[in-house]
Design a protein around this nucleic acid. Structure first.
Length: 283
DNA sequence: AAACCTGACAACCGCCTTACG
DNA sequence: TCGTAAGGCGGTTGTCAGGTT
């Protein structure tokens, strides 16, 4: 049915916000809140559409916004969460206090993605999906494709041991295809299994990597619910040995009727319940 | 010094989801 | 149950500052 853009109305201002507009918006929200964005600009006396006001508040004016450069930890967290969630920026932002989805999206496209792509271009082409950090380069390591990929598999399952390759699903976003090949995340000492990711993310035993074929199924995020149910069933096989928490068992077992369509939070919960909370930032 | 290029980020656009009558 | 309005989200674009030629 289509809908006219909300800012098409004649007389509404577009473009960068002025300090005066900011002040008006802040004052109004402090006084009256923002229960109705559509009506807010009119009530506040702003020549902006509600969407524009909402965006300005959410992304810039909120008092709890954290400004400034992203820390290494934050960048690492984004990379990790993106690996799990794909381009669900708002979900990622929800786990990075003070950061907005827009900001995270920007930093991904301008910094992190390029870092990963850069590494990809310099990466040897031979053992594409299974290459792993070279022991000799351990002191200044970057994460290879397999390592980055395995990070998810590992965080999902708790271990990479005894995972049948046919069941070894890994997941990426539609956008992640360009970076699943590798990441250029600085990863000191990973080859020894004791890098910065060791405690936080990777417990990968290097000896296991060669025996753990990495399969990146790019269709996961766009799968139908039926497909996802199927995926969930496969995951059930993978996870059943790993997830001890009884609360999770019903969702993994039996009928396979896991309602996991678009339910990344569920998987996050899995990680948390699997006693891997240290891998994620505080919520 | 000027022109051009690039990176960063704020803001917009349009689709999807949800709430409600 | 359906239609509509509003909110929310992700993709994309526009603009500007800093760097390079």
């Amino acid at each position: 049915m289509g809908r006219a853009p909300c800012c098409d109305k004649v007389g509404l201002k577009k473009g960068p916000w002025t300090p005066e507009e900011d002040q008006i918006l802040i004052s109004f929200i402090q006084k009256h809140g923002h229960s109705n964005w559509r009506a807010l600009p009119k009530q506040a006396g702003l020549l902006r559409c509600g969407k524009s006001c909402r965006l300005r508040w959410i992304n810039y004016l909120r008092p709890d916004i954290k400004r400034g450069n992203f820390t290494k930890e934050e960048e690492d967290t984004i990379i990790q969460l993106h690996e799990i969630m794909g381009n669900r920026w708002s979900a990622i932002a929800a786990r990075l206090p003070g950061r907005t989805d827009n900001e995270i999206k920007n930093v991904w496209h301008t910094h992190l993605k390029k870092r990963l792509e850069k590494y990809q271009t310099t990466k040897p082409q031979g053992k594409k999906a299974r290459s792993r950090p070279n022991q000799a380069n351990a002191e200044n390591m970057t994460v290879s494709n397999s390592t980055a990929t395995n990070s998810f598999v590992e965080t999902s399952t708790g271990t990479v041991d005894n995972v049948p390759s046919s069941s070894a699903h890994s997941y990426s976003s539609n956008d992640f295809s360009s970076i699943t090949e590798i990441s250029s995340i600085e990863l000191p000492n990973i080859s020894s299994g004791h890098g910065i990711y060791d405690d936080q993310i990777f417990d990968i035993q290097q000896s296991n990597l060669d025996d753990f074929p990495v399969i990146f199924d790019e269709t996961f995020w766009s799968s139908s619910s039926q497909d996802l149910t199927s995926d969930a069933n496969d995951l059930n096989l993978v996870f059943s040995d790993m997830v001890d928490d009884e609360q999770l068992q019903p969702q993994f077992s039996g009928t396979g009727s896991c309602d996991c369509e678009d339910n990344v939070d569920f998987w996050l919960d899995v990680f948390v319940k699997a006693d891997r909370t240290s891998e994620l930032p505080e919520f």
